[in-house]
Write a protein that binds this DNA or RNA. Structure first.
Length: 575
RNA sequence: GCGCCAUUAGUUCAGAUGGAUAGAACAUUGGCCUCCGAAGCCAAAGAUCAGGCGUUCGAGUCGCCUAUGGCGUACCA
């Protein structure tokens, strides 16, 4: 897409006065901003910082310069107070957008930014043997979206589900299973049953502290490769994974690797040896630690006094393994903000080990999900299961479809697309760092800035195009420049600009690892589209005007479909 | 105690590298389906940007202090 901002920067930088002050094109480009109010134009050049160099008031400078600058793509250059405002030629921008979107199609918004670079995205990473609750949706959906966006930006993306499939908890499960477990029960409802064992274990352990000791010993055996323990562990893992797969399929989430914590069990000694070699390891109360006090990061526990390892050791081993296996450019971890310290600690340790790629390991934190009656706690039953939320949203959608008598031959499919899309969209709508309180009312609200709203806009665009094709109308791409003169009204131009801004928005969302930036822009596009739709009569009498508008509709549909796809939300043709 | 994060309309949130009258959505109120989909559109009302001090020509945005809430603070993950 043509860079109009660049064109303006070039024109400004060409001014003798600007050169004299030492401003080059690049810095002018940076100074240029988008006015808060679109009535002020499309780009603005504030003159405040020129005041000193010119020894004149900013207003006077702006007034003087505005008269001198001409930009080919701008139909108006105007001075208001200390600003020079540039108004782009609407027809030209429209032509540019139509041309780009129509020719790039499904690739519209993509780039080659990450070409040749590998990005690892670790997300979801649930604990085996515990149910997926609404809190788990965050890492899963945010991570998946970041993966999609990075891929679209040209990165070679590897998605890893770092399963929590190791640790003392498995010692507990094995102990519990041996005491009162049954094979049939586990096979029938793996997660529910394993959770029950886990809860019961904790109840019993309150009266009998030796159970905890037994559990730790059992895990220690597992870690050392005891066959019986290993078989049980493997079975628990497989059964749990089967159930997770159900949720992943509902969400349309995929992974390239399920190498969880256990995968690194045989790579731990090497880490510990290396830490020792590099004189980073110290003994403390019978345990092995790395002292990070001088970096205000406390002490990192590497090995427990009983000799078993902790997840920090596994994370270090995993990072080294990934560097060697994938030679990543970025190694991203979509993990709750609660683990800030943990990440700071191990990344610091990797740095101290002398690996300069430590800086490429990035923790991407997100806030936690609370329930209206307090924190979520699986053990006490104060929990909302993800699967229930997804099914609830699908059910609600089904009711709406029936109520509205939507014309469809597959109510089930449509309910899934819209219902699950609503949940995902809502999850990606806010800044990831914010904590939020789960509310049924909110996820089941399909009006306003929601997934269904955007999907509805997409379906509406689809239906316009369907009608056109049924009427035998094939809008031609020829004469775009002249056709685009029909796309200069306020509402048309607002839509054109929203589409124009999509590629850079995707890039920003990718560079900041913040899908919500894209989500919000999708809403902007949908709002602009709906405004355009209501303001303009698409099937105009004039064939050229009609065709130009239909092409814009097609572009809007394409942009919505592409960007919804990045979020992992479906774009239905009808709803 | 110490550290990290958050605090913007009744509610949930946006606010790009500091810049021109702080934006949406939900909820509320009032309009719009004998023209293309009302899961839509238009409009009204609603904000001392937690409080204070400071830096700056200019602060919701940067710095310091205070308050409130959350998270973390070695043998869980």
């Amino acid at each position: 897409m043509k860079d109009f901002r660049r064109e303006i920067a070039v024109a400004i930088a060409a001014q003798e006065k600007i050169k004299e002050v030492g401003l080059d094109e690049a810095s002018v480009y940076e100074i240029l901003e988008v006015p808060a109010d679109e009535k002020m134009g499309d780009y603005a050049f504030p003159c405040f910082r020129l005041a000193k160099a010119f020894k004149k008031a900013p207003n006077a400078i702006a007034e003087k310069l505005a008269g001198l600058i001409t930009v080919p793509a701008a139909e108006k250059v105007e001075n208001v107070a200390a600003y020079i405002n540039f108004y782009l030629d609407r027809g030209e921008v429209a032509a540019e957008v139509l041309k780009t979107v129509l020719s790039e199609g499904d690739g519209f918004g993509s780039s080659l930014l990450g070409k040749g670079k590998t990005a690892i995205v670790e997300y979801s990473s649930p604990n085996i043997a515990k149910p997926f609750h609404i809190g788990h949706i965050r890492s899963t959906v945010i991570g998946s979206a970041i993966g999609n966006i990075m891929k679209f930006l040209g990165y070679d993306v590897t998605r890893i589900n770092h399963l929590g499939d190791y640790g003392t908890q498995f010692g507990k499960l094995i102990v519990a299973y041996r005491r009162y477990g049954s094979k049939e029960e586990v096979e029938a409802e793996p997660i529910k049953t394993l959770l029950k064992y886990y809860v019961e274990f904790h109840k019993l352990a309150e009266d009998d502290p030796t159970l905890e000791v037994e559990a730790r010993e059992t895990f220690s055996k597992l870690e050392q490769g005891a066959e019986e323990e290993y078989e049980l562990w493997k079975w628990f893992r497989e059964e749990s994974l089967k159930e997770f797969t159900v949720v992943y399929e509902m969400l349309g989430i995929e992974f390239d690797s399920y190498a969880g914590e256990s995968f690194y069990s045989d790579k731990m000694d090497r880490v510990i040896d290396e830490l020792e070699e590099k004189n980073l390891l110290q003994e403390s109360d019978g345990a092995m630690i790395v002292d990070l006090e001088e970096y205000d990061l406390g002490k990192a526990l590497i090995k427990k006094s009983d000799g078993s390892t902790l997840y920090i050791t596994r994370d270090i081993a995993a990072a080294i393994y990934r560097k060697e296996t994938y030679d990543f450019y970025k190694n991203l971890y979509i993990v709750a903000s609660q683990q800030d310290l943990h990440f700071k600690q191990w990344i610091k340790i990797v740095e101290l080990m002398g690996y300069d790629w430590a800086a490429d390991c990035v923790h991407i934190p997100f806030g936690l999900v609370r329930l209206e009656n307090g924190a979520m706690q699986t053990r006490t039953g104060n929990v909302v299961f993800l699967e229930d939320v997804l099914r609830g949203a699908v059910e609600k959608t089904r009711e709406i479809i029936i109520e509205k008598a939507v014309n469809t031959d597959d109510v089930e499919e449509m309910s899934k697309t819209v219902g699950i899309g609503a949940v995902i969209f809502q999850e990606l709508h806010n800044n990831r760092i914010k904590d939020y309180t789960f509310s049924w009312d909110k996820v089941l609200n399909f009006e306003g800035e929601t997934g269904p709203y955007v999907q509805y806009s997409h379906a509406r665009a689809a239906s316009l195009l369907k009608r056109a094709s049924e009427d035998g109308i094939v809008p031609s791409m020829e004469g775009l420049a002249s056709a685009s003169k029909y796309l200069t009204s306020d509402s048309s131009f607002a839509l054109v600009k929203a589409l124009f801004n999509l590629p850079e928005t995707i890039e920003e969302a990718g560079l900041k690892y913040e899908p919500s930036i894209l989500t919000r822009h999708i809403v902007d596009i949908a709002q602009a589209f709906n405004g355009f739709y209501h303001e303009e009569h698409i099937f105009a009498l004039d064939a050229k005007e009609r065709d130009a508008k239909l092409l814009l509709v097609k572009c809007a549909k394409q942009a919505l479909a592409n960007s919804l796809g990045l979020l992992g939300v479906g774009a239905p043709e009808r709803m």
